[in-house]
Design a protein around this nucleic acid. Structure first.
Length: 860
RNA sequence: GGGCGAGUGGCGGAAUGGCAUACGCGCUGGAUUCAAAAUCCAGUGAGAGCAAUCUCUUGAGGGUUCAACUCCCUCCUCGCCCACCA
C-alpha cells in the first residue's frame, strides 16, 4: 500500500495541489465577521522580489522560508495571518535586461514573473496568492501616481534645476541613494554631475521625524545605525565672514557680496581658522567675479573640477585648489585677514558650500595647507597649560583645551563650542544650525520603464495667470521655465488616473535628458485639465523605488478602486509585524518607505506612524567556494535542481539549519544531506509497524523531553533562531527512535503527533503526509500549536554542580529546593569531592540555588 | 577616516556569568553486502596515562568575579555599511 521510502518528489506536488484547492492559505476577510476582527492579527511580510532574468538562486528563498515558518506557527497559535507576495517590476534592471535581450520590458517582466512564481511554488509556501500585486499594473500604479499628486499638493514634490548624479551608461539621473562609491549602483559606471530639471521629493523635511522615530522600532541595531548615519544629523553653527577687497580700507560695497557663510560643528577652533575654502560650484564665485583679479584662472579650475567624475574627485586624494586673488575674509573671532581659496574637496551640497579651514585640527585642511603653504595654527591642546606645541605632523583631531584663543583659553573644547557660539551669536556673526547629510530625493528618471509622472505643462495657464492675478507664484512648485518659456505646472486630475504608460516600440534611453516618451506625440500632447487648451505631459518616469515605497499597504486591500487602502482594514492589519529582507535596503527602500508612510500618516490616509514594527535581515548564502553567488563565478545553485533531487522540505530544513538567520554562510551539499537524513529518519519511524508491549507505564523521561522541545521550538521560532529549533527537534527524534520500545503505544502516538505539529512549519509536506498516515482527516496546518506543561520541565530531582576553588569536581543529584546546609553536607561526603577537600578547611561557600555549590578551601 | 558586527574542534555552529565544544557535517573502526551505495553500532578538541583520572584549550594580553566564550580595558585579524558631510 503505502511506500516505505520517503519520496518527496511524489508527496510534495500532491500536497501543494491539495492545499491550493482547499484554499488553505486564504487570508480571512476582516470586517465580515466579528470574531475575525476580534482575533489578533499578524502581518508577515517579505521584501517582494525584483523578477530578474536569471531566476531565483538558493539564497533568495532563505528569507521566505523563515517567514513561512513564522507565519505557519503563528497561524497554529491562533492568529489571523496576512502573508502576501508580489512583484517589484518597474525600473532600470528590468529595462536594461529587456534592451539586452531585445524583448519589450513588459513582455520580459511578465516572463520573469512567471518563472519566479513557478520557482516559488515548488517550495510549498503559504502565500495568499489572491492578494498578489505587481507594481507595473496600472491598477496598482494609479495609486503610486496618486501619492505623487498628494506630495505635489503639499509642495513636497517640486521641480529644480541643479547638478545631479548622472549615469552616462544608463542615460538617466539618479538619487544620491543610487550611487555607491561614485559609481552607478546598477552598472558601475562612474557618475557625472549634470545640471538638469528634475523632480525632487522633499525627504529632508522628514529628516528629524525619520531620525527620532527610529527609537520606537524593533529593528536590528545595525540597520537603525545605518539609517542614523545616512540621515547624518550634525549640530553646529553658521558663521559669517566679512569680505574685504584688496584696497584694504575699502570694504566691498554691494550688500549681496558682503559675507561668506560657513557651517562648522567646531566653533571652538575658530581662532585657528587661517583661510576659507569655497566649493567650485558655489554661486558666490560668480557673484564676486568683478572683485577677483585672477578670475580667468579660477574659471579654468572650476571648469576642470566640473568635468571630474565623483570617483575622480574621491580617488585623487591630493588636494587641488586656487586662491581668489584680490579678495580676503575677516576672521570674526580675531579680526585677522585670511585668504579665500576654491577647492573641490569642499562639497556644494552640504552646509553652505563653503568652510572655514582649521588646518591644525582637520586632516583635510591640514593636507591642503601643507600643499599650499598656508599657516597652521594650533588652538586645541591635549595638555593645558600647553607646553610649546611641537610642529604638527598631522592634524590633531582629539579632545583638549583651548589655547591661542584669547579670553577662551583653558576652556574644555565642548565648553569652548558653547561659549564662542554664544559670543559670536550676540554679535550677530553666528547662528546655531543643524545640518543633515540626507539630501532631497531625485525622483525623475529619463527612462521608459517606470510610472509616468502625472503632471502636465501648460503655457496658456501661465499666460492667464500672469494676466489675471497678482499672486506670487514660485518656480519649481508652480511654474517651470523650459527653453526660456514659462509653463504652469498642472497636476493631472485624480479622476484621470492612472496615466498609463503607452506601449511603444522604441524604448531605449535617448541620453538627451528626456525619456523616450517625449517622442510619442499623441501621448505627450494633451488637453490641459485647467484651461482645456493644448498642453504637454511630463515625460520623465518615476524611479525603481517608487512602487516599493508603499506596496505593503496595498496588500491589505488589493482590489480597492476607491482608495489606496480602506482605513478600517488598515487599522486592523497595520503595521507590518514581521518584515524580512536584505540588509542592503537599510538606506534605500527602508528609508523611502518610512518617508512615504509618514507623509500618508500626516495627510490622514494611514493610522500608524511607522510601517514596519519588527525587522530581521537575511544573511547571504554564499557559494560553495565562499564567494558571493554569481554567474561570473559559476557558483550559482538553482533551487529547482535541489528540490528535484532532494525535495523542498530538505531545502527548507537545510537553509534554516545552516546557522544563525542573519549570518552569511556558504552552501554545502554534504550538510544538506544531513537535513535529508533527518527527514528520512522521521519517515522511517512512521512507516515501521510499531511492536507494542502492553501494560507499560508512561515514559516520564521522553515526556519531559517533549515538553522541553515544545518550549524550545516555540521560543526559537519567535526569535528567529531556526537553527537551534531544528537541533532540538533532532534531539527529540533521536531519543524517540532510541527509546520507542520503552514507550507505550498510546503515548507514542501522542508523541509522534506533537512532533509532527512542531515539524510542520519547517517541513510542511512531510508533516502533512505522515499526519494523514496517522489517520487524521483534516490538514495538520489547521491544527493547534501544542502547549508545554511547565510541571514536566521543572524537574523534581536536579543536578547540582560541585566546585572546589572554582573548578568543576563533580555533580550530585538532589531534590529540588534542598536547603544549602543539606547540600553542603551531601557534597562534602561525596568521595570525589573528598579528594579535593582533604586536609583543607573551608574559607567560604558560594551557593546558587538549584545550580551550583562552590567551596573555597585552604590547606591546613 | 567614521559606524556596526564577528573571531569557539578538521568544517557549519551551540552555550551570553555557573559541567565549553549541543546539533549537524566530515573522519576512523566495526556490522551488513559478492561488491558498492544506503543503513546501523562505536569512537572523534589537544596532551599524559594500561586505567580510573588529570592537565591544557573559546584571536593575543591585562582586569573585574568564588566563577568569564560570556562583563570591562588595550591590541591583532576578518566581514559588512558609510565616506573629502566641515
Amino acid at each position: 500500500m503505502s511506500s516505505t521510502k520517503y519520496n518527496p518528489q511524489k508527496i510534495e506536488p500532491k500536497w501543494q495541489k491539495r492545499w491550493e484547492l482547499q484554499k488553505l492559505y486564504k487570508t480571512s476577510t476582516v470586517g465580515g465577521s466579528v470574531t475575525d476582527s476580534k482575533k489578533k492579527k499578524v502581518y508577515v511580510l517579505d521584501m517582494f522580489p525584483y523578477p530578474s532574468g536569471q531566476g531565483l538562486h538558493v539564497g533568495h528563498p532563505k528569507g521566505y522560508i523563515a517567514t513561512d515558518i513564522y507565519s505557519r506557527a503563528k497561524k497554529m497559535q491562533g492568529y489571523n495571518i496576512l502573508r502576501p507576495m508580489g512583484w517589484d517590476a518597474f525600473g532600470l534592471p528590468a529595462e536594461n535586461y529587456a534592451i539586452k535581450h531585445k524583448i519589450h520590458p513588459e513582455t520580459a517582466a511578465q516572463k520573469n514573473i512567471k518563472r519566479f512564481k513557478e520557482q516559488l511554488s515548488v517550495l510549498g509556501f503559504n502565500y495568499d496568492w489572491e492578494r498578489e500585486i505587481n507594481t507595473t499594473d496600472p491598477k496598482y500604479y494609479k495609486w503610486t501616481q496618486w501619492i505623487f499628486l498628494q506630495l505635489f499638493k503639499k509642495k513636497l514634490a517640486y521641480k529644480s534645476y541643479e547638478p545631479i548624479n548622472w549615469c552616462p551608461s544608463c542615460k538617466t539621473g539618479l538619487a544620491n541613494e543610487d550611487v555607491e562609491n561614485g559609481l552607478c549602483e546598477r552598472c558601475s559606471t562612474p557618475i557625472e554631475q549634470k545640471p538638469m530639471y528634475q523632480w525632487m521629493l522633499k525627504i529632508t523635511k522628514y529628516a528629524e521625524k525619520l531620525l527620532n522615530d527610529l527609537t520606537e522600532l524593533d529593528w536590528e541595531k545595525h540597520i537603525k545605525e545605518a539609517q542614523r548615519n545616512w540621515i547624518g544629523k550634525s549640530n553646529g553653527a553658521t558663521i559669517s565672514f566679512e569680505l574685504k577687497t584688496q584696497n584694504k580700507k575699502q570694504k566691498t560695497t554691494t550688500k549681496k557680496l558682503k559675507l561668506i557663510k560657513v557651517f562648522t560643528t567646531r566653533t571652538d577652533t575658530i581662532f585657528g581658522a587661517t583661510y576659507l575654502v569655497i566649493a567650485p560650484e558655489n554661486s558666490i564665485i560668480k557673484n564676486l567675479k568683478l572683485k577677483i583679479k585672477n578670475y580667468n584662472e579660477v574659471a579654468k579650475y572650476i571648469e576642470k573640477a566640473k568635468h571630474k567624475t565623483e570617483l575622480e574627485r574621491k580617488e585623487n586624494k591630493t588636494k587641488t585648489g586656487i586662491e581668489l586673488k584680490g579678495i580676503t575674509a575677516i576672521n570674526p573671532a580675531n579680526e585677522e585677514e585670511i585668504p579665500i581659496w576654491v577647492s573641490d574637496y569642499v562639497l556644494t551640497v552640504y552646509g553652505t558650500g563653503a568652510i572655514m579651514a582649521v588646518p591644525a585640527h582637520d586632516q583635510r585642511d591640514f593636507e591642503f595647507a601643507q600643499k599650499f603653504n598656508l599657516p597652521i595654527k594650533q588652538v586645541i591642546c591635549e595638555n593645558y597649560p600647553a607646553p610649546i606645541c611641537p610642529i604638527l605632523k598631522k592634524a590633531y583631531e582629539g579632545n583638549g583645551k583651548l589655547v591661542g584663543s584669547e579670553k577662551f583659553n583653558g576652556l574644555q573644547y565642548k565648553e569652548g563650542i558653547e561659549k564662542i557660539t554664544e559670543w559670536l551669536t550676540k554679535r550677530k556673526l553666528a547662528k546655531k544650525t543643524t545640518n543633515y547629510k540626507l539630501r532631497d530625493w531625485v525622483f525623475s528618471r529619463q527612462r521608459y520603464w517606470g510610472e509616468p509622472i502625472p503632471i502636465i505643462y501648460c503655457r496658456k495657464c501661465w499666460e492667464n495667470e500672469q494676466k489675471t492675478t497678482n499672486k506670487k507664484i514660485k518656480e519649481g512648485y508652480d511654474y517651470i521655465k523650459i527653453n526660456d518659456l514659462e509653463y504652469m505646472i498642472v497636476p493631472v486630475l485624480e479622476k484621470d488616473l492612472p496615466v498609463k504608460l503607452p506601449k511603444i516600440k522604441n524604448y531605449k534611453p535617448t541620453g538627451t535628458g528626456e525619456s523616450p516618451l517625449a517622442n510619442i506625440k499623441e501621448w505627450v500632447n494633451v488637453k490641459c485639465p485647467r484651461c482645456k487648451k493644448p498642453a504637454k505631459r511630463e515625460t520623465n518616469t518615476m524611479p525603481q523605488w517608487a512602487g516599493s515605497s508603499w506596496y505593503y499597504l496595498r496588500y491589505i486591500d488589493t482590489k480597492n478602486n476607491k482608495t489606496l487602502v480602506d482605513k478600517k482594514k488598515e487599522l486592523y492589519w497595520s503595521p507590518v509585524d514581521m518584515y524580512v529582507g536584505g540588509a542592503e535596503h537599510a538606506t534605500r527602500h527602508l528609508i523611502y518607505a518610512r518617508f512615504w508612510h509618514k507623509f500618508l500618516y500626516d495627510i490622514g490616509i494611514v493610522n500608524y506612524k511607522e510601517p514596519f514594527k519588527k525587522l530581521y535581515s537575511v544573511g547571504l548564502i554564499k557559494g560553495e567556494d565562499g564567494r558571493k553567488m554569481s554567474k561570473r563565478w559559476g557558483n550559482v545553485i538553482n533551487p529547482d535542481d535541489i528540490v528535484a533531487r532532494f525535495g523542498a522540505d530538505t531545502l527548507r530544513v537545510y537553509e534554516m539549519f545552516m546557522g544563525p538567520f542573519s549570518d552569511s554562510i556558504s552552501w554545502n551539499i554534504e550538510n544538506l544531506m544531513g537535513a535529508k537524513r533527518f527527514l528520512d529518519k522521521i519517515f522511517k519511524l512512521h512507516s515501521k509497524t510499531q511492536i507494542i508491549k502492553h501494560k507499560q507505564n508512561t515514559n516520564k523521561e521522553i515526556e519531559k523531553l517533549l515538553n522541553k522541545t515544545i518550549k524550545k521550538v516555540t521560543d526559537d521560532i519567535e526569535s528567529f533562531k531556526f537553527n537551534t529549533a531544528i537541533s532540538s527537534l533532532m534531539i527529540l527524534i533521536n531519543e524517540i527512535v532510541k527509546e520507542q520500545k520503552n514507550i507505550p503505544s498510546s503515548q507514542l502516538k501522542i508523541l509522534n503527533s506533537k512532533f509532527l505539529i512542531l515539524l510542520s512549519p519547517f517541513a510542511p509536506h512531510l508533516a502533512e503526509e505522515l499526519w494523514k498516515k496517522l489517520g487524521n482527516k483534516i490538514s495538520i496546518h489547521l491544527e493547534k500549536w501544542p502547549n508545554y506543561d511547565k510541571n514536566f520541565i521543572l524537574e523534581k530531582k536536579i543536578n547540582i554542580i560541585v566546585q572546589v576553588n572554582g573548578r568543576f569536581r563533580g555533580a550530585i543529584e538532589i531534590d529540588k529546593n534542598l536547603p544549602e546546609n543539606k547540600i553542603k553536607e551531601i557534597a562534602l561526603k561525596n568521595e570525589k569531592i573528598k579528594i579535593w577537600t582533604a586536609n583543607c578547611y573551608i574559607v567560604k561557600t558560594i551557593f546558587v540555588p538549584n545550580k551550583i555549590i562552590n567551596f573555597i578551601v585552604k590547606q591546613y
